[in-house]
Structure formats: C-alpha cells, structure tokens
Design a protein around this nucleic acid. Structure first.
Lengths: 193, 193, 193, 193
DNA sequence: CGTTAAGCGAGACGGTACGTCTGGTCTTCGT
DNA sequence: ACGAAGACCAGACGTACCGTCTCGCTTAACG
C-alpha cells in the first residue's frame, strides 16, 4: 500500500531543506523583523515561487522550520509526584534561550495575522499544552490536585508567565523562576494558616 | 520657572489630536496589520512629515493614542483584604474588550522592534504593573502574603495569563476567569491537606 | 551568432510601449514641468519599479519616446546644389511645431543633469548634426564651399538659431526664417562689393 | 516727487544682499539643480518667508543676482568698422566662463516655466540683444550691411551659437570661435566668386 | 513716547513626488 | 510538473522641498 506517486517532477527535498535552513540562518543573523521571502529565496538559491508554492507566508516557513527542529513529541516522564513532575517540566520548558528569536517572531506574526495564529496554535502551541495537561491529569489521578481546579487555567498560567517573560525580557527564565512559579502554583501566595 | 518658549511656529495641538484620533479609528476599522502612516495622515488631513516629525513609527503613534485614552493613573481602592482587592483588580484589568486590537498590535510591534519594546514597557506596561504591586504591598503590610513570595513573580503570573489569553483568544477573560486565577493564586492548586 | 537568451521572465514589450506612450500623452496634456514618474506609471498601468528598472529618470523615458517616434535616419536627398539642399533641410528641420514641448523639456533636463546631457547629445542631437554635415560635405565636393569654412561651425549656427528660437519663442521658425538663415549663410551679411 | 515711504519696518538691505550672495555661493558649490530655497535661506541666515516675500521663486533670486553682478549697461564702443566692432563684441560676449552655471540654470528654469521665461527675456536677454542691435544699426548707417538683411535674424544667429555652445559644451567659445563666426557672418560660406 | 504696521528669523504645517523596498503573481526556459 | 530566474503590478516606506502659516521680536514713522 505505497503512497501513490503523482505525475511530473516530484517536490525537491533538497529545496525544502535549503529553504528551512536559509530561513533559520537569516533569522539568527538579522532577526525576524528583517526576514523577507526574497532574502530566504536568495540565500537558499531558490526561486521565490518555490517558496510560495508550498508555504503561504514567511511565517509558515519559520513555523515549519521550528517544528522541524523542535521535539515533535514532548516527553514527560513520570517522576512520581506533582511537585517533581512540575519542576522538571518547568525547567525543560523555560529553557528557550536559543529559540527566543524564532518564538518571538512567530508570535508577532500570529498577532498580526489571525489565519497564521490558528496554525501557530494548532501546530505548535497545542502539543506543548498537551504535555502540561498530561502532568496535571496524572496528578489528578494521584489525588494531588484540588478537585475544583480547572487544568486549562493552570496551563494558561504556566505558559502565560513563560510567554510574558519571553516577550518582555524583563526577568529571567531560569531555575529560580521555575521554582518560584512551581511554589506559587502548588501553595498559592497566601500565608499558611 | 516658566517653560521657555522655543522660536518658530508652535506645535499644532489640533494636528496632534487629529493624528491620534485617526490612528485609533483606522485601527478599529481595518486592524493593526493594515495600519499605515499614509493612511493615518490622509485620514487626519495632515502631511506625513507632521507624523514623522513627532513620532518615530506608527507604533509610537498608537502607543501615545492608547496612553492618551487609558487612565494614566490606575485607581486601586483598598477593599480591606487581599482576596477582595485581587478580585476587583482582575475584573477591572481583564475587561479589555475594546482595547484588544490596540494592545495586540502594540505587542506585535514590540516583539519586532526592541526599541519600541522598551517604550511600550516603560510608558504603558510599567504603570499597570505598579498598580498590581501596590495591592500586593498592601496585603504584605496586613500580613496576608507569605514572606517568601516574590511580588514581581505574582505580577508576572497575573499579566502573563492576561496577555496569553488576550493574544491567543482561546479562552475568555471574564469574571469566571478572574475568580479562577484569584483562587489559584490565593490557595495554590494543591489539595488542602 | 544569436542573441543569448537570459533566464527568467523576459522584458514585457507591452509595458515598454505603454510607458513610452503614457509619457508622451502626459507630456502633451500637462507639459514637461508637470511630468512625474508616478503619473506615467499610473497612466501606463504599470508599477513604478518597472520604469526605474529600465530607465534612470523620466527624462530618459522621454528621450526614448522621442527617438522612438522621430525618424532615426534623416533623409537628405541630393537636390543638386547647396542652396537648394540647404533650403530643403532648413524647411524640414525648422518644422518642429508638435515636438516643441518634448524638445524643450529634454533640453531643460540636459541643462540640469550633465549625465543626461551626454545621452541627449549622443543619442539624439548627434544624428541631426550628421545630416547637416552630409549636406556640407556634398557641397564641398562640388566646390561650393569656401575652403577655410569649418563645417562644424556652420552646423552650430544652424542648430544654434533653431534652438534659440525654439527656446525663446520670440520669432517664428517658418519658411521666411529658413530663407533668411539660408541667405545669410550663403552670402554673409556684408553688402556685395 | 520722492518715493513715498510705507509705514512699518523697512525692507532689510542686509537680508537682500545675504540672500543674493548665498544663492550665488550655493550655485557655484552645488550647481543649479541642487539649489533650493531652503538652502539659500539657511545659508543666508534668513527665514524662508523673507525670500518668498520678495521673489517668486529661486530662479527669480538667481536672475536678480545675475543682473546685480552683470554690467547693466553693455558698452559697445565704436571701433570704426563692422568687422572690428563685431569681433570686439563677440570676444566680450563669448567670454562667459564664470557665469556658465548661472546662465545654464536660468535657461533651464525658463524652459520649464513660461512666466519666468518672460522675465528672463525681458530683464536679461533683451539688453544683450540691444547691444548687438546697436552695432548693426551703426554698420547700416555706414552702409556696411546689405539692405535686405534682417538685423534680428543676425542677432539670433549670434546668440543662437553662443547659447548652443554654452548649453552643449561640445565646442569652445574662444577667440577662434569668435573669428569663425565673424567671418561666416561677414562673408557667408560660399566660395568667393 | 507709545502706537501702529510691516519686516524679520524660526520652524511647523498640509502637500506632492521622489526613489527604494517588499509582497505576491506571472512567464519564460531548462531539468 | 517542478525549479531557477527574474520581470510584473501594486503600494507603503521615509525623505526632501515646496509654498504657506503662525509665533515672538525688531524697527521705523506717526500721532
């Protein structure tokens, strides 16, 4: 049951790779704001049309490049307890150093273009949220989570802080941050009674 | 100690207002992505140079317009207890319905332009954070907050969720959201022991 | 020895024609001073870049349009004697009625832009001077011209008067003018001894 | 019958001079094409309005500057015979070395702006033509000119060559040129019978 | 001597066109 | 049919000047 071959010259995998690589390199060197389809095409040694044939915009290219390089499946090994799971997850998730320019650029695009926002949400953000959701479900099964807590809200809080700091760059996303957020989520901010 | 008058024709307040108004109206009608300096100038009945003379980019215009229309000083009346203060603040803060396009556009710009990001942070976001900080300080004075809690992290959580939902538009920013966040912050997510 | 074809989409002849035509029509209707690249592009239904890709300035466009419409090769049939040749040439040359705005505009540009002046001289004026030169050479062969006369000076006189009257518009360029110039050149102004 | 004094502050002669001087200096340094009213005003330490109050355009300023510096009255001393008068006149007239940029610029403006063309003709060119006309009249009185020669045509020939060479810069305006033109005018180009 | 009236430097104003840039599409040939 | 090359239409960009306007200040002559 092989994939039926279409007539004509098949899509060039070399071109695809060249485009994704060129996009990432342009982005690293000049930043997302300076990214242009022309620039990517020139750097990849490819015609502009070859890009437009397969992607709708430069953001889609970058999104593909990101997904291509990111772990498609996020492993969330069970460490036995919510605090440990959460801490491990935050540490892994917050470490976005290298990817910051890419994420920032894509978010900017998503803010300006609702159609791309959907793609960004469904093809990238969703899988991250799913990982976090799995941890919470595990904890719920263990009875570690209060029953009236909405897991989606918790996920929003985690990714909210992550993105907020990623975007404004006013506070670090290091281990201290992880443990503060973790603490805050687990205990709340109120003084223990 | 009077403000020394500069020589030459003074800046036209009428033009300033017309530009800010035109920017907001263009934004409401066509969205931030379609906003152009030419469009603002045309709508305001103003030369483009008059815009470039006083603002560095369309984002700066919109930022000024936003600040102009937003309450410069955010009132945070003391309701007596942290839970009540927090709930009131969240309800007021989350109600950004009308401003969403403006905020989204400005954040997009901030992500693309570090110089503007600074202005956005210092001239707009800072005052919002200050309001939240005041509430936390008040609560700390009352002994309502655990001593090892970093108020800046709490602020990041609150505004993190706000922005995350504002940007992704995947979950409401209504009263239910407010109380969930409030609950979560006050008690943590762990089942009471 | 065929012209090697370059890769990519070939230049659009339709666009070239549309641009030249639009330039001439704009010029006829509004005059050279009001001619703008934007206007030509709009009238031709063409992007501005398509003009800038092939011409350096609006003057170059007009020069091409003029050369395109002018007889590239000026016929100077041999009428047998210098007086007859000269009179025929002057009558033909002085009849610039329709072209006056074009010529005036190009000369203005040439006066303001030395680079264009060169192009104007070499690509347009030179061929006109060559025609006159041929007549004088023919007359010299016949022994009709005094041997110490510099033909270039004579050419300068003819075209000098032509341009001077064309520019100042203070005297006609009609048949009377032709015969006066012709007379003057042939006999000089001194009373016959 | 003295010029009735108008009330209010009188026109500043210092400003007038500064403007004319600044215009000439700008012109010498950067050429007519780069001349701007703003530039003249800045260089002269004068407000733009002070220029527009007294002149209609930069060309009018330059024209005034030219007239100011040129000999208002052109002396044409009677040397006794047409050949000597003519030669002296041509030598003096052709020597426009320093003034070339000014004359070229003004002519360019005249070609683009009919209103200025009139001013240029009446306020500058006319007096030059008058000088030449006087010489021809003198010669006519002496019986040196053929009776059917139109002096205006002769003047056009002289100034035609002058301007043609001045504008195209393809041939010198030196003494050789003067004597060639003089010869040609006096004897015609035909071989002596 | 103070009022009146214009000129002055300065510089912001509403405009227009510039020449450049990028977007997204189309058209060619070669593979 | 795909890929490269590159021209095409479109339109915003930010700049440069235009010619006008609006300030406060200066400079006379007149009452």
């Amino acid at each position: 049951m092989t994939e039926q071959r279409r007539p004509g010259r098949p899509r060039s995998e070399a071109a695809r790779r060249a485009i994704l690589d060129a996009a990432m390199r342009e982005l690293e060197e000049h930043g997302y704001a300076a990214l242009t389809v022309q620039g990517i095409a020139a750097r990849a040694g490819v015609g502009k049309q070859t890009i437009y044939r397969w992607w709708q915009s430069k953001a889609d290219v970058v999104l593909d490049a990101l997904i291509d390089m990111a772990d498609t499946h996020i492993a969330v090994p069970d460490r036995g307890s919510l605090p440990e799971d959460l801490m491990a997850f935050l540490k892994a998730t917050f470490d976005q150093r290298g990817r910051r320019p890419v994420l920032i650029g894509l978010m900017a695009q998503a803010l300006l273009d609702p159609a791309f926002a959907r793609a960004f949400r469904d093809r990238f953000l969703a899988s991250r949220r799913a990982a976090m959701r799995k941890i919470l479900e595990r904890a719920a099964t263990r009875g570690e989570v209060a029953p009236d807590i909405d897991p989606e809200t918790v996920i929003d809080v985690v990714y909210g802080v992550l993105w907020y700091r990623l975007m404004l760059n006013h506070a670090p996303l290091d281990e201290t941050a992880s443990s503060q957020i973790s603490d805050l989520l687990l205990r709340g901010i109120t003084r223990d009674r």
